[in-house]
């Protein structure tokens, strides 16, 4: 293990994340993990890592970092105007960087969350099988918190001269965060708690992502979704992408740092492959929802797993 990065400016809220903490939700421990698992996985693959290695998740305003050791890096997800010594670098491509260089981020161009992977992966103590930071409980990642000025991060000690830089994702595979594709959902599990028109309305109207959105959930604003009687349900498990609707009728999409259970009726759940598309939308932007079947959602999920399998092989060469 060797120190690889020093934080010069922390940015808005940069935290270490992986694919999340699985197996402890029965104790009330949120999974946490990368908001955009797709971008996180790609960034890792581009630098020769396994997809579950930890990356640095940056939100809108990235960190300024000093490179302490030669390595290969890649960014997946949002384009936050990254640069090395002032020369622009782009997401979805790997670059060789050298000790003493400064990596900076500037104006957010597309998307919200960017993932920085380094060859070998960041090293930190795992908490309950994961390196993901859960700030509210002060666990995981780098000392259980977002990065601060002066933090020195370590990576696995390895010879990175054999890792090829310049690997990239094909243009056709790069997600377009600007496109107005509806976010696909599966109805329920509490459809009966809503009036008959509510679900139809939810799929027809558009909803705005409000400023009160964060890693716990995206709070939406739009035409209120009426309940039959009341919004409260007997507290029950919630999953990534679950959309709960409190008494005010304004939906909340629950995301990585969500509590494990919730007490509001759930109108739908965002399908797994569409969560990245949703989280990369900017606060203030409008979102529309489209109802799909379980079969369609799972077919897309399986197709994505096959895509990653193919990519693992392709990027190894």
């Amino acid at each position: 293990m060797k120190e690889i990065l020093e934080v010069m400016k922390p940015g808005l809220a940069t935290s270490m994340q992986d694919l999340g903490r699985v197996g402890y939700q029965k104790y009330g421990i949120p999974t946490s993990g990368a908001m955009d698992a797709f971008a996180h996985r790609i960034a890792n693959l581009l630098v020769g890592n396994a997809e579950e290695e930890a990356t640095l998740e940056m939100i809108l305003m990235g960190s300024q970092l000093k490179i302490l050791r030669d390595t290969v890096i890649a960014i997946g997800g949002a384009d936050l105007s990254a640069a090395i010594d002032g020369n622009p670098i782009y997401p979805w491509k790997s670059y060789r960087v050298y000790a003493g260089q400064i990596m900076s981020f500037g104006k957010p161009v597309h998307g919200t969350y960017a993932y920085l992977a380094v060859s070998g992966g960041f090293v930190t103590e795992e908490v309950m099988g994961s390196k993901s930071t859960y700030v509210q409980a002060g666990i995981g990642g780098f000392e259980g918190r977002v990065l601060q000025k002066g933090d020195r991060l370590s990576a696995k000690d390895m010879d990175t001269s054999s890792i090829r830089a310049g690997k990239y994702l094909k243009k056709i595979d790069i997600p377009n965060y600007e496109q107005h594709r509806p976010i696909r959902i599966i109805a329920g599990p509490d459809l009966s708690a809503f009036s008959n028109e509510a679900y139809q309305q939810f799929c027809q109207e558009s909803y705005r992502i409000t400023e009160q959105s964060n890693r716990m959930g995206y709070r939406l604003a739009g035409k209120a979704l009426p309940h039959v009687e009341k919004a409260d349900i007997i507290s029950d498990a919630v999953l990534p992408g679950t959309i709960q609707v409190p008494a005010n009728g304004q939906p909340i999409v629950l995301l990585s740092d969500r509590q494990t259970t919730g007490g509001y009726a759930r109108i739908a759940t965002v399908i797994t492959t569409d969560i990245p598309q949703l989280v990369q939308k900017r606060m203030g932007s409008e979102v529309q929802f489209l109802s799909v079947s379980l079969e369609k959602a799972q077919a897309d999920y399986l197709a994505q797993q096959r895509y990653f399998k193919m990519l693992r092989t392709a990027l190894r060469q």
Partner: peptide
């Protein structure tokens, strides 16, 4: 009951 695309309730 199915719950999202990765859940059963």
């Amino acid at each position: 009951q199915t719950y999202g695309d990765r859940g059963v309730r």
